[in-house]
Computed example of a mutant assay.
Amino acid sequence: MSRLLGVIDAATVMGGLQDLTLNRSVASIPFAGRYRFIDFVLSNMVNSGVDSVAIFPKHQYRSLMDHIGSGKNWDLDRKRDGLFFFPPNFEPNETTSIGSFSRLEQHIEFFKRSHQDYVVIASSYVIANIDFEEALAEHLIHDYDITEVQHNGKSLEIYVISKALLIELIEGRRSSQFISVSDVVKQPLHNFKIGAYDHKDYTAIIDSIPAYLNHSMDLLRHDVWSRLFTQDRPIYTKVKDEPPTKYSSTAQVSNSMIANGADIRGSVENSIVSRAAKIGKGSKVKNCVVMQKSHIGNDCSLEYVILDKDVRVLDGTSLKGTAEQPLVLRKGSVREAAMVKS
């Protein structure tokens, strides 16, 4: 029986990702062709033996609920423990920092009824493959009050804490003035013993559009992919039945990830193409992320462009961003070639 209770704080608001969060939460941003951000931390918990996970969203969480469903794809659809989804009550000026006590307090009975003695509270925008059992072991060996998971000294906003202390902090939030677990860790004036667990393997903190594109491109490197997606600690996601990818005789693909159901008739280089996306004949797509069901017409040229879901790029359109400032085409938008005045 697991000693850890999982909490995913999906209430994060990232201004740098605004173009991708107009219709969804940060946790449900598509990544790596067939995954969502939340798949990584949720899979990390399941692979660490966590069999009870609570998700606390705040904004635009319909797509997140649709993706997670009953938790079946993570083996969390069970009678005892399993997956819990706790939409928030409205509270003005509530913090979005990780482990908000006011947000957790709305469901305090969940924590009191849980049989686990320790809690791992995690953000949803970190892409990594972390063993939380190792983090708990570090926590217990050093008798920390709160252990912060870090990578190269930088906080991943993932914390291990005893359930008893968490409940104490939640119930005492008005007198202590602490607003979240993150706040306790960052405040210098208290008597809590704060420690760190260093996750040494590949880690991506995605808090901006350039970071999203650059870390997406990281996945095209075999050394990164093989460290993130391992056989013994797989990353799970919602299963969709799609036909195989279709490559026409005019298709040219190099150093790219192409998901099931895609239709490739043009050239794709250093790019990630999601399920059911289409790239027309004569089109050139380079250093791009093409999300689900987006259609690129014939004779187009795209470089350093992120196409959200259901985008249409009409025939003959040329679009170019840079690695430092990628061009984002918002969900459901249509782009066409600029008219040339005579």
Results as ranks from 00 to 15, higher is better:
Pro244Glu: 15
Lys193Pro: 02
Asn270Arg: 04
Met257Trp: 10
Pro188Tyr: 15
Asp201Lys: 14
Asp183Met: 02
Ser274Gly: 12
Trp225Asn: 01
Lys193Thr: 06
Tyr197Ile: 14
Leu189Phe: 15
Ser182Lys: 15
Ile194Met: 11
Leu220Ile: 15
Ala211Pro: 00
Tyr247Leu: 04
Ala259Trp: 03
Tyr212Trp: 14
Ile264Asp: 04
Ile209Gly: 03
Ser267Leu: 04
Glu242Leu: 15
Ser271Val: 10
Trp225Asp: 02
Lys238Arg: 14
Tyr197Arg: 05
Ser208Leu: 13
Pro234Asp: 09
His215Met: 04
Thr203Pro: 04
Asn214Asp: 13
Arg275Val: 12
Thr203Gln: 09
Thr250Tyr: 06
Ser248Arg: 03
Val184Glu: 03
Ser216His: 08
Asp263His: 03
Ser267Gln: 00
Arg227Glu: 12
Arg233Ser: 09
Tyr236Asn: 03
Leu219Arg: 08
Asp198Gln: 09
Ile179Gln: 08
Asp241Ala: 05
His190Glu: 06
Val239Lys: 15
Asp218Trp: 07
Pro234Ser: 11
Pro234Tyr: 10
Arg275Pro: 01
Gly195Ala: 05
Leu228Glu: 04
Thr230Arg: 15
Pro234Val: 10
Ala259Arg: 13
Trp225Ala: 13
Ala262Thr: 10
Tyr197Leu: 04
Val253Asp: 01
Asp241Met: 06
Ala262Glu: 08
Val268Lys: 00
Ala211Asp: 11
His222Glu: 12
Pro188Leu: 10
Asp198Val: 05
Leu228Trp: 01
His199Ser: 09
Pro188Met: 05
Ser180Arg: 06
Thr237Ile: 02
Ile194Val: 11
Ser249Tyr: 02
Asn260Trp: 10
Pro244Gln: 12
Ser254His: 10
His190Val: 09
Val224Trp: 02
Ser267Ile: 05
Pro188Ser: 11
Asn255Phe: 01
Leu228Arg: 01
Lys238Thr: 07
Lys186Ile: 05
Asp198Thr: 12
Ile272Leu: 11
Ala251Ser: 13
Ser249Lys: 11
Pro244Phe: 12
Lys193Arg: 14
Val185Tyr: 04
